[in-house]
């Protein structure tokens, strides 16, 4: 009995507040917009019994999904979300790897402090970290002032409200997600392997390519997924740092819902976003599982 309650309470909570909402999204994505509250139809009429059910299912269709394919705004938004996520993952890897590498090579008594310095931004508000860049990247911002002072440019660059600002914001906020798994892979590495490689005639650089990189492969893969997956649905960064030309699906969904009040289309956008995410999520889970099996 106790065991039953222990299982049932969190189980039912998640069914009620995670699974059922999901089914509702799916259902509304198949509904039509209506000038009513709530602004979609059909509504399930329980009082009408079986006939009500039949009428309800008969009125559901894939019209909203057709609509998404006809308006190229949505295609472009999905593609550009994927492209922005991919590019920023690569940049984050290039920035994060040297940092993780240097941390793993630092003296052991320094490592906990360095680790804490990477984790600290995690606990600081995401919104504030994105906001910090607004003041730096604006036309009169510190970056432009600095570059003008150096004499590298003659007039301020427009960075804020462009995709460049979005990339900077993503790399900045997601960098710890990349550093931590790579660091934990590199930290476990046995240094004698590098010495062996060098004794056997490898140069330092080729020892790095042939030994260090393959041994940190799992960390790299985990870090990349940890950046790539959440960035696809990112909303805060494109809406604060991006401009009108920045198309990302999280922002489109938000606007479809709050500005256009088109719930069925917003739901359809959400369903497709989820379908896109399923593939990287499954790949990520597999990688994690493989790693666990290798360790266990």
């Amino acid at each position: 009995m106790r065991r039953f309650i222990l299982i049932a309470v969190p189980y039912l909570w998640l069914v009620a507040l995670f699974l059922i909402p999901f089914v509702i999204v799916l259902k509304i994505s198949l509904s039509d917009v209506a000038l009513a509250r709530p602004p979609y139809m059909p509504q399930l009429d329980f009082a009408a019994g079986w006939e009500g059910f039949k009428a309800f299912f008969a009125a559901l269709d894939f019209e909203n999904f057709w609509f998404l394919t006809t308006d190229d705004l949505y295609w472009k938004a999905y593609l550009s979300s994927l492209q922005i996520a991919l590019t920023s993952t690569v940049i984050t890897l290039l920035v994060g790897y040297p940092i993780a590498y240097a941390m793993a090579r630092a003296a052991p008594e320094w490592r906990p402090t360095l680790l804490m310095l990477v984790i600290l931004p995690f606990w600081t508000s995401f919104l504030i970290r994105v906001y910090a860049w607004m003041g730096i990247l604006s036309n009169e911002g510190l970056l432009n002032q600095f570059l003008l002072w150096l004499g590298l440019i003659n007039e301020p660059l427009t960075i804020l409200n462009t995709n460049t600002a979005v990339y900077i914001g993503i790399v900045y906020t997601y960098l710890p997600f990349m550093i931590l798994p790579i660091y934990s892979a590199l930290e476990r590495m046995d240094d004698s392997l590098l010495e062996a490689a060098e004794d056997l005639g490898c140069s330092r650089l080729s020892a790095f390519w042939l030994v260090t990189i393959p041994l940190s492969k799992n960390g790299i893969i985990a870090g990349c997924f940890l950046v790539f997956i959440p960035v696809i649905g990112e909303f805060v960064i494109p809406s604060l740092l991006g401009g009108s030309g920045t198309l990302m699906i999280g922002k489109v969904l938000w606007e479809e819902f709050f500005s256009n009040r088109d719930w069925p289309v917003a739901s359809a956008v959400a369903v497709i976003l989820l379908l896109i995410l399923v593939i990287p999520i499954i790949l990520f889970q597999r990688n994690e599982q493989k790693q666990r099996e290798a360790e266990g």
Binding site: I7, P10, Y11, L14, V15, L17, F18, L19, I20, P21, F22, I24, V25, I28, P38, I229, P230, I232, G233, E234, F235, G250, L253, W254, F257, W263, A266, S267, A270, L273, L274, L277, I281, F284, Q285
Partner: peptide, 27 residues
């Protein structure tokens, strides 16, 4: 299903979680 429901919200985009919960509360 249970372990799926524990791990799924960790990777779910916030816009989807938010939208689905709102639709539930209105429903």
């Amino acid at each position: 299903l249970f372990s799926g429901m524990i791990y799924a919200p960790l990777v779910m985009p916030e816009v989807i979680t938010g939208l689905s919960l709102l639709l539930l509360f209105i429903g």
